[in-house]
């Protein structure tokens, strides 16, 4: 390739006026052929630009599983609900169990107990008063003897 043509291409290149195919000609010239002495200073640019394209990413891309995030939170809420439910149920069943009838019986028992107590209290009060009747008997006996 005659260097005159390359020089022209170079001028256009630095003005940003070359097409992709013209730039390829430049890259190929500076990377493969014997470069004319007065153009050798441009060589590193085109070798560098070509080399820059050879670089590869070495790290694998990691992608999260589909909807894994949503799935997890869903499981968390289920687990939390189960724990709460078990706790409540455990507390509930640890309490003594009465049927409706038994509960009514218990209430009735408490009521009648109160009533009995009340009755006996008042009976005691009445019994105290009866001592006066005894006194009357004693005095009557004294008089009629």
């Amino acid at each position: 390739m005659e260097s005159v043509k390359i020089e022209k291409l170079l001028d256009a290149y630095f003005e940003g006026a070359t097409s992709l195919s013209e730039e390829k000609v430049l890259r190929d010239y500076f990377n493969n052929e014997m470069v004319a002495d007065h153009l050798v200073q441009y060589k590193p640019i085109f070798i560098g630009l070509k080399a820059a394209k050879e670089e590869r990413s070495t790290k694998e891309i990691e992608l999260p599983e589909n909807h894994s995030k949503i799935n997890k939170t869903w499981w968390y809420s289920i687990a939390a609900m189960l724990i709460v439910a078990l706790g409540v149920a455990g507390f509930y069943f640890s309490q003594p169990q009465y049927t409706q009838e038994e509960k009514e019986a218990l209430v009735a028992f408490e009521k009648s107990k109160d009533a009995m107590l009340f009755l006996s209290e008042n009976l005691n009060k009445g019994a105290e008063r009866l001592t006066f009747v005894d006194q009357f008997e004693i005095t009557k006996d004294k008089i009629f003897e």
Binding site: P44, I47, G48, A51, A52, R56
Partner: peptide, 18 residues
């Protein structure tokens, strides 16, 4: 070892270009 830029930087002024 994996760095091609580095390997080529040995020649010429390519390193300078980068």
């Amino acid at each position: 070892s994996e760095n091609i830029e580095k390997n080529i930087e040995a020649n010429d002024g390519v390193e300078m270009v980068f």
